[in-house]
Design a protein around this nucleic acid. Structure first.
Length: 504
RNA sequence: GCCUUCAUAGCUCAGCUGGUUAGAGCGGUUGACUGUUAAUCAAUAGGUCCCUGGUUCGAGUCCAGGUGAGGGCGCCA
């Protein structure tokens, strides 16, 4: 029995077990918002129903105390969830005191330090539910398409894309690395099973302090035999569309709590724009328009909007501060204004950040040198013109991994594809068609100065029944961050690991 | 690795061009009051102003170094 099942028990006596999310008390009645992991329910504890002794105990309950309440389920439209419990009995498992996370605002560091408790708050609950649905939808898609799920090893002796940024461990006296990608193993498995996908943790020792990097994250890597880059792009598009639409359908309440504008996600039903690297560079540099819009002027306009908004915020702060300073108003009104001011000041800080970054991004896009990889800011500038994920393919082969297949019609390019999410979320998928020629692969391994001996088993795949094959890697946390429209990927995983963070 | 912003009460923040006794709200405690929704009202406790050194008659405030954190770049998913 939990709070999401109350609709089946209207008028009946039930017992709910959970935690005190919030409490308001008076002389003869205590209101408790009970949180049980499924939802919330307001419980009314009256002195006449409980008796003097229990009522006094109820009054003393601190936030996050664990309790069981028994009472009658009553419909009440005003309440979260639509029901409330007229309580007649109370069992206290523990009366918790001094719970550190209040219902007020907190800073990032404090919240992450208290991640084990922060997970209980409503927003975090919603994110974890969305993450769960995303994971379920991913399995659902691949299983229904006859992919076999496989687990790639986490200890590896080789490095798919070079040895930098790897976590080294001691493996019976030899160096071993925590996996950066299961792809090479996925390729081997695809030759056995036809279509496979991995779903596992990945480790990168990048010293990145940005809102889209983690040291430990979860990656989904499908690999398909007899599949070229264009079929690969079809799969990516169908896959992302299926996952996002399923999450929208299953998590309306969670997305509502997060304040997510669903219409911005529903666009995935439309085709994803596809463009070559060459075309993307032209758009990025402002030489080519998209739907009559130029990337550079749009970003400049964004900057102007930011400046205007900051002026608005500062005017409102001054106005509210004057209201408080004038005096003669109730404490509640002061609090209300003070909270608004706090919120506005946080927004101003963000806007100031934007004002420092946007001009840099603009310059970076304008001065982009053909042949380079796109940086984080370039991705943001480029995707600003689209309302759907975009797919960029045919990259200069020099900047792509050694296993990427050359375009047979134009060997300057490798058949890689990056999927860039809208709303500034950047690269969520990287993939491509794999090189099939042993000779070209050997050449590339030497070019990248990688140790040939650890790739012998991989080269075997080209010696025994080599076929065209493709695959991609999806970063789970970046996908969840986009679906939820979060500021930072660290909120998408229960216990984030990123540069400088190992606890809790 | 580079650039940038910041560090004041348990939490979120204010503290002006340096000035003697360190401020608010929330949270805690006590009381009042109320079908309340981050309730409200009153009282009350709570501080090594991150650390070290410097300038000064005087430093939370200025300077240098350190430590920790936020963000951006590079790299990536």
């Amino acid at each position: 029995m939990h709070t999401k099942q109350l609709d089946q028990y209207v008028g009946q006596v039930v017992t709910l077990k959970g935690w005190v999310a919030n409490k308001r008390e008076s002389k003869t009645v205590v209101f408790i918002n009970l949180r049980d992991g499924h939802g919330l329910c307001q419980c009314i504890l009256g002195i006449d129903d409980l008796g003097e002794e229990l009522f006094v105990e109820a009054k003393s309950l601190g936030q996050e105390s664990s309790i069981a309440v028994t009472g009658t389920v009553v419909v009440d439209e005003r309440q979260i969830g639509g029901y409330e419990l007229h309580t007649t009995d109370l069992k206290i498992y523990q009366n918790a005191k001094d719970y550190p996370i209040s219902n007020k605002e907190h800073g990032v560091e404090f919240l992450v330090d208290n991640r084990h408790l922060w997970l209980r708050s409503r927003r975090q609950w919603a994110i974890m539910k969305v993450r769960n649905s995303v994971i379920y939808a991913i399995h659902n898609f691949f299983q229904s398409e006859d992919f076999v799920q496989m687990d790639a090893p986490i200890f590896t002796g080789n490095a798919a894309e070079g040895t930098t940024d790897l976590f080294e461990t001691d493996y019976y006296g030899k160096p071993a690395y925590l996996t950066q990608s299961g792809q090479l193993y996925g390729e081997a498995m695809a030759m056995a099973m036809g279509k496979i996908y991995t779903f596992g943790p990945t480790f990168r020792a990048e010293k990145s302090k940005t809102r889209r990097h983690l040291s430990e994250f979860w990656m989904i890597e499908p690999e398909m035999a007899f599949c070229d880059i264009f079929e690969n792009m079809d799969t990516i598009e169908n896959f992302l569309r299926a996952v996002v639409l399923e999450v929208i359908e299953k998590c309306p309440e969670e997305l509502e709590i997060l304040g997510r504008d669903i219409s911005k996600l529903e666009t995935v039903a439309k085709p994803f724009p596809r463009m070559s690297y060459d075309e993307a560079v032209e758009i990025l540099k402002g030489n080519k328009e998209v739907n009559g819009q130029n990337s550079l002027t749009v970003i400049q306009a964004d900057l102007d909007t930011v400046i205007a908004r900051q002026a608005e915020c500062e005017a409102e702060i001054a106005e509210r501060e004057a209201t408080i300073a004038a005096g003669g108003i109730k404490k509640g009104v002061i609090n209300f204004n003070q909270n608004k001011i706090d919120g506005l000041k946080a927004e101003v800080k963000q806007l100031e950040e934007d004002q420092r970054n946007l001009p840099q991004w603009l310059a970076s896009a304008r001065d982009f040198t053909y042949g380079q990889d796109f940086g984080g800011s370039d991705e943001t500038v480029l995707t600003r013109l689209f309302d759907n994920p975009i797919m960029v393919y045919d990259w200069p082969h020099e900047i792509k991994a050694f296993y990427m297949k050359r375009n047979p019609e134009d060997p300057r390019f490798a058949r890689g594809v990056d999927v860039l999410a809208p709303e500034g979320y950047g690269e969520i998928v990287g993939g491509g068609e794999r090189e099939t020629s042993e000779e070209w692969l050997v050449e590339k391994i030497q070019e990248h100065k990688l140790p040939m001996d650890v790739f012998q088993w991989y080269l075997d795949l080209r010696r025994y029944g080599s076929v065209p094959h493709s695959g991609f890697g999806l970063g789970l946390e970046r996908l969840v961050a986009w679906v939820c429209k979060l500021d930072h990927v660290r909120e998408t995983i229960p216990f984030p690991r990123y540069y400088g963070r190992l606890e809790p």
